[in-house]
Amino acid sequence: MSRRSTHGTRVAPSLVIWLVVVWMLLWGTFDVATAVYGLVVALLVLVLFPLPSHRWNIFRRPWRLVVLTVYVLADLFGSALRFVADTVRNSAKVSAAIIAVPVLSDVDHIIASAANVVSLAPGKFVLQIDRPGGIWYVYASGVRTAEDAHKAYDDVIDMQRVAVWAFGDETEAPAARSRAQEAKRQRDRSAVRKPQRPSPIEAVAASEAQSRGAESGDAEFHGAATRENDHDRDGGDDPGDFDENRREGR
């Protein structure tokens, strides 16, 4: 892989160029003297504050980056308006959800960047990254029904797929696409089984019932599944199913 060839070099050329560009933008003057000072400062910064040796050139595929930017901006506007409308109408009774969404990449910096892209749009942010399990826990506001939760899930998967496509290398983009389809399929299948809408109190009670059920053994837990309980159990099952698929995929 081309981006691993810079292993061990402390001063990566792309990083130097980026820092010089930032320096010149900060000064707002574009002449040789500023560039020279910028170069000195950039080298000083890189030598004094070394970054991890694993580097990654984000501008390798500018076209994809442009597509991602347009996608994010469109999403930013759309979801900002939706968030504002929802907040203005329902500020007294806010309704939100924390949903588990499978991560589509195995590379740390791509996961982190994709999480940032997802968190940028209003209405959603990545609350917790379960790196070994490959799961994001995404806080989504304006979620009232199970359908809303599924829609938020699909949105996050779509956004993530575009982000991995833009940031990742040639092998990651198709892998992310198939994983996205797989993850959506898993989710949609469970959607048929849980069209109910638990009220917040019920959801809390159900998740507590579930944890009690988990403590006292799996069989009893499945037997004790009520309507509300069913909803939560399915949600908890999704990441696990996905993990199994991923292991098989490797």
Binding site: K93, V94, S95, A96, A97, I98, I99, A100, A115, S119, F125, V126, L127, Q128, D130, I135, Y137, Y139, V143, R144, T145, A146, D148, A149, R197, P198, P200, I201, A203, V204, S207, Q210, S211, A214, H231, D232, G235, G236, P239
Partner: peptide
């Protein structure tokens, strides 16, 4: 993300607003 994570862990969440909380299920498990 950092503030949200800290708020979640320190009880800055009004749980009655959450329709689904798949993180609490995972943490309990």
């Amino acid at each position: 993300q950092l503030f949200g994570r800290a708020a979640y862990r320190t009880g800055g969440v009004d749980r009655s607003t959450l329709v689904v909380d798949e993180l609490s299920q995972r943490l309990r498990a």
